[in-house]
């Protein structure tokens, strides 16, 4: 126990400041200022892998490390879409995940936001559209913000989330 406490004390706080919104990532203007003011205080995110290679997931997991301190920004990942304000969707939407993604979208309460993550989520990526894959996320559910990158860095993902909950300028 003493070792654990000593380690915590010696490392100290490593958290960094979050980035601001980036209007270039915005696809759809779904929120007005009043809702953003409410959502902006605390945000619950449900992640859905709709066909990703697991690369984007690794960077989403990085968001929870002490440097990005996601929960310190009043943002947390939740275990059910029914608790979620925002869906973070990765991958091209493959045929075998289409029904699951639509059900998750339907289960999330309104008003809800969708952030498509990674080159696959934005455009279909290297897989594109094929018999097994429907391509970009917006081919299946409405998308508010799309964050490119393969995979996008944690700062870029955070920026996409912050953009989604900021009132459009």
């Amino acid at each position: 126990m003493l070792k654990t406490l000593r380690k915590i004390a010696s490392i100290g706080l490593v958290s960094e400041l979050p980035p601001g919104p980036d209007e270039l990532l915005r696809v759809r203007r779904a929120l007005d200022d009043r809702i953003a003011a409410v959502l902006g205080r605390a945000l619950c995110i449900r992640h859905v892998d709709a066909g990703s290679c697991n690369g984007c997931e690794l960077e989403i997991q990085s968001l929870s490390n002490p440097y990005y301190n996601l929960e310190g920004c009043n943002i947390r990942f939740v275990a059910s879409p029914r608790h979620a304000d925002l869906l973070l969707v990765t991958g091209p939407v493959v045929k075998n995940m289409e029904a699951a993604l639509k059900r998750v979208y339907a289960a999330a309460p309104d008003p809800k936001l969708v952030v498509a993550l990674g080159d696959c989520g934005c455009t279909g990526g290297i897989l594109g559209e094929c018999p097994a894959s429907l391509g970009r996320v917006s081919n299946v559910i409405p998308v508010d913000v799309a964050v490119p990158g393969c995979p996008p860095s944690p700062v870029r993902i955070l920026q996409g989330i912050v953009t989604a909950i900021s009132p459009p300028v």
Partner: peptide, 11 residues
Amino acid sequence: LGYVHKGLEQR
């Protein structure tokens, strides 16, 4: 399993 089957071999 098979939920993220995306047709890699065909691609």
